[in-house]
């Protein structure tokens, strides 16, 4: 078991699986005394397919407790996040847009395998509360009806998921 005082305090973990589908997300964790971890995690996603274009961004902050008092440890904690995603579809020269926002508060459990030279592998998973909002700038009444229906549907199940599988560096 590593001594708390000798533990590296900084780490950066890019989400490698996200990279594979055009999503850019990385987190920085400041680990105090090997035990108390403070996380910040920005994300960005851009993609276009056919007549649709998507842009999403978000940020998550979180706290976690490393129960072995080291980088190399399991952990428990909570993340709070906000994300906004917009999709635009062009149909017959007219643009239809939809924006979905999400506020989330998710308890999490995870494991970090860390080696002394700096490498870490981190896995986390959580399920918690999610508050969604759907909106459009379109004047089309049918599009607006569709967005209202989506808004109700998304709020039927106020659930948000959180996850990470990443390769990172401690320093």
């Amino acid at each position: 078991m590593a001594e708390a005082s000798g533990e590296k305090v900084h780490s950066i973990n890019p989400d490698l699986f996200g990279l594979a589908n055009g999503s850019y997300r990385l987190n920085y964790v400041y680990l105090m005394d090997g035990t108390h971890g403070f996380l910040i995690e920005p994300s960005l996603y851009m993609n276009s397919s056919g007549s649709e274009e998507y842009t999403s961004y978000g940020a998550t902050v979180g706290y976690r407790w490393h129960w072995d008092g080291a980088q190399d440890s399991g952990f428990l904690g909570v993340n709070i996040g906000y994300a906004s995603g917009t999709g635009i579809s062009t149909q017959g020269g007219e643009d239809f847009d939809l924006t979905v926002t999400q506020f989330s508060m998710v308890p999490k459990i995870g494991w970090r395998w860390a080696w002394d030279f700096g490498l870490n592998i981190t896995f986390r998973f959580g399920i918690g509360y999610g508050d969604y909002g759907a909106s459009t700038e379109s004047d089309d009444p049918l599009a607006q009806e569709g967005v209202e229906a989506l808004d109700s549907l998304l709020n039927l199940l106020p659930v948000a998921l959180d996850g990470e599988l990443s390769l990172g560096w401690n320093f």
Partner: peptide
Amino acid sequence: MRRLLMTVLALGILTPGLAFADHHEEAPAA
């Protein structure tokens, strides 16, 4: 139709990986 379009956009926003998979499904296997 417009209502359906909004649902398609919502799926694209909420499941970005799937939208990408659709886009690339015709890529030839190695």
